[in-house]
């Protein structure tokens, strides 16, 4: 097996181990119900993280995910008050996400501003726009929201694959196809592997950069839509700090922050590992939020050190 699959295998192994550990600790844990819930509860963040995976594979970063999720929710809630159907406002927000991402990509490529900085400005801008629209939570009252959360596919063993989870899985399939079976997907890997060479090899840099960030914008807007439907409200502080969770999911999923190496599917497991930890800690009533942060950091540390040595050896050979 090629070295490049090792981080992905490690991610899946950690997920399985954690899940089994949970099952041994708590009798009710080991069920499709819990698994379905983890998928459903974390779908929005995993969707956004899938988009971020492309950005990170290309060697960039997107910090505006959390703000985008909050912004989408606030706008959808207000459009709901104005009588829009959630699907219509969702479509509008996804188009907005794509447009926003395209603009970000353009600024990165044309103005040569580092992705970190421009998406940081985007984080402030979108969050600020949330505050300008609303300061309080606004409910989304359209009955479609209830229908959405009632939809789903029953799993064997009493579990339930919620509509959020289904949206996430569809988004995953699309992303995997884009990453591995399109010219654009190869270009993303090429730019992340060596941007200078990619340019000389004729990879259309501007077009690809625009598309990468447009894709990330689309996916984070979709994440926002799912989150808004899932919580049936728009709250201007929603999604604060989620960019970190998304990046952590991508890293735990085996994608190198140096770019060029990574898997979209890994991100789903990375996100689910984080969701699993939160669920485990919630199962134990005495543990609290502080533990979620600390254990998340610890896990991140372990994975990062592991990547460092696994891929360090691969890179060493590549460089020599």
């Amino acid at each position: 097996m090629s070295e490049k699959y090792l981080p992905l295998m490690a991610t899946i192994a950690v997920f399985v181990i954690l899940f089994i550990a949970g099952g041994l600790l708590y009798p009710n844990f080991f069920s499709t119900l819990v698994l379905g819930n983890i998928l459903g509860d974390n779908a929005f963040i995993i969707i956004a993280a899938i988009g971020t995976t492309f950005v990170i594979i290309s060697g960039g970063i997107d910090l505006s995910i959390g703000s985008m999720i909050g912004f989408v929710g606030v706008v959808m809630a207000n459009l709901d008050s104005a009588g829009w159907h959630p699907l219509a406002s969702a479509a509008l927000m996804i188009v907005f996400g794509a447009g926003y991402g395209t603009l970000v990509g353009f600024i990165i490529d044309f103005c040569e501003i580092q992705p970190f900085i421009i998406t940081l400005a985007g984080l402030f801008l979108l969050r600020g726009m949330c505050f300008m629209i609303n300061l309080d939570a606004v409910p989304i009252k359209n009955p479609f929201v209830l229908e959405f959360s009632d939809m789903g596919i029953p799993l064997f063993g009493g579990g339930w694959l919620s509509s959020s989870a289904i949206v996430m899985l569809v988004a995953l399939v699309v992303a995997v196809i884009i990453a591995h079976w399109t010219e654009f997907g190869s270009a993303v890997y090429a730019i992340g592997g060596d941007a200078q060479s990619a340019k000389l090899m004729g990879v259309p840099m501007r077009k690809t950069t625009l598309k990468i960030y447009a894709l990330s914008g689309t996916y984070s807007a979709l994440g926002g839509v799912v989150y808004a439907l899932y919580t049936s409200s728009g709250y201007p502080l929603a999604g604060s700090g989620l960019e970190l969770v998304a990046i952590a999911s991508v890293v735990l999923g085996g994608t190198l922050l140096t770019g060029g190496v990574g898997f979209v599917a890994g991100t789903v497991f990375g996100g689910m590992i984080l969701g699993l930890i939160a669920t485990l800690i919630n199962f134990n009533g005495s543990l609290n939020g502080a533990w979620i942060m600390i254990s998340g950091g610890l896990l991140l540390f372990i994975f990062i050190v592991m990547h460092r040595f696994l891929v360090g050896s691969l890179k060493f050979r590549a460089g020599s």
Binding site: A248, V251, A290, M293, G296, G297, L300
Partner: peptide, 14 residues
């Protein structure tokens, strides 16, 4: 960026 992310994620928990 990753190294300091670890403390960023866990520091507030600490």
């Amino acid at each position: 960026i990753i190294a300091t992310l670890i403390l960023m994620v866990s520091g507030r928990g600490i």
